[in-house]
Simulated scan of single mutants.
Amino acid sequence: MQSVTAFTDTYLPTVNGVTYTIQTWRERWHRRGGRMDVVYPKDNDYAPESGEFPVRSLPFPFYEGMRVGVPRVPDAVGDADIVHAHTPFGLGLAGLRLARRRDLPFVATYHTPTGEYAEYLSSVNVIERGVERTAERYERWFFDRADAVIVPSEDAKRRLRDEVGVDAHVVVLSNGIDIERFAPADGDAFRARYDLGDGPLVGYTGRHGYEKELDELVRAAVGLDATLVFGGDGPARDELAQLAADLDVDARFLGFLDREELPAFYSALDVFGFPSPVETQGLVALEANACGTPVVGVNDGALEDTVEDGETGYHYESGDIDSFRRGIQRALAERDELSTRCLARRDEVSVEHSVDRLAALYERLG
């Protein structure tokens, strides 16, 4: 098995889709007898394990909880066979430098459309659009230098082509989920632990970022005979809680949930609501499905493909709150049938299939 060094600007203790994907791929790679080191921004709240190499980092002032690594290549990763960047910035540049210096295959994953986060830098439309254009030009420069660019969905491939201008050497490869972990669990015990009662539950877990349009989920819950449950945290949490209070929505904010709790969280829900239009795959939707919970998600971004109407849940058009509410009501009424279809598709979304394809890509490039 080849030795891989992954460079990322997002890693533990931050828990999100990028961190989860890197961790899961790395664990499966090690199972196969390979080595996958990780270079990431140092955070004093996390003690590195073997094969994890923190480098000096600085807080990113416009995005709470994010740190940016100073581009540097630790000496210990200099013997890699493959370099894989999970960011075009900061440490992604360090990975590119290592690949060019040692003439190694360079793979980059397009996890996040950077332009979507321009609003964090400015609320002025002209400035925001200028930031988006600058980000897209830079991303084009970076990804054009990769031997292969991995995207987790067909939507992400379209975005990379249409918005960034990268079309060649792009490979659609799902991040996959750990179906050993994400399977039906004891949802009743989770309900009891958090005093959620025995009525219908509609929920979401993940970062409470403004770009995820979570207010649409709160507004869609108006008039529903259900409790709204949020797991996770983020900058929009307080405003979401205030909105729920203003609209008289029964909403519970559980805060950050340990990953070990997530299968029970998903299993406790009757429907997972997912209004975010900025996902490049939407792993939490696949995790919910793998636990037997249908998803009602926006018909935009990766969720256009991740959610299958009538099979794993339903779509609604972004901004159409009435349609969102109707989708949730329909999924609540058909919960048992949708759950059966979700569980029948578990193997299709497993990380094992994803790592099989990743290994084949590495082998082809090496």
Results as ranks from 00 to 15, higher is better:
His86Asn: 01
Leu12Cys: 00
Gly292Tyr: 12
Ala236Gln: 10
Asp195Leu: 14
Pro61Ile: 13
Glu128Val: 07
Glu216Ile: 02
Arg191Ala: 15
Glu154Lys: 09
Ile328Thr: 00
Leu240Phe: 08
His169Asn: 06
Glu154Ala: 03
Ala76Leu: 15
Pro59Met: 11
Arg145Phe: 11
Tyr210His: 10
Leu201Asn: 13
Glu154Asp: 08
Ala226His: 00
Ser153Lys: 02
Phe89Cys: 04
Tyr204Leu: 10
Gly176Phe: 14
Phe265His: 03
Gly203Glu: 08
Pro71Leu: 12
Ser123Trp: 08
Thr14Gly: 06
Asp258Met: 03
Phe190Glu: 10
Arg325Phe: 01
Val355Pro: 12
Leu257Arg: 10
Leu91Ser: 11
Ala99Tyr: 13
Asp37Glu: 12
Pro277Phe: 12
Ile328Leu: 06
Tyr40Asp: 13
Leu247Phe: 02
Glu216Cys: 03
Ser276Tyr: 03
His353Tyr: 04
Gly17Thr: 08
Ile179His: 01
Leu104Asn: 09
Val298His: 01
Ser174Gly: 11
Arg325Trp: 02
Glu119Gly: 09
Ala226Glu: 06
Tyr40Thr: 07
Leu93Val: 00
Leu121Cys: 09
Pro263Gln: 00
Val126Met: 11
Ala268Trp: 02
Val15Ser: 07
Leu286Lys: 07
His111Ser: 08
Arg145Leu: 11
Val172Asn: 05
Ala192Phe: 02
Gly301Pro: 05
Val68Asn: 04
Arg341His: 11
Leu303Phe: 07
Phe190Cys: 06
Pro263Tyr: 00
Gly90Ser: 04
Ala135Gln: 11
Glu334Lys: 08
Asp147His: 15
Lys42Ile: 10
Arg345Asp: 05
Ser323Tyr: 01
Asp167Pro: 06
Asp79Lys: 08
Ser350Pro: 10
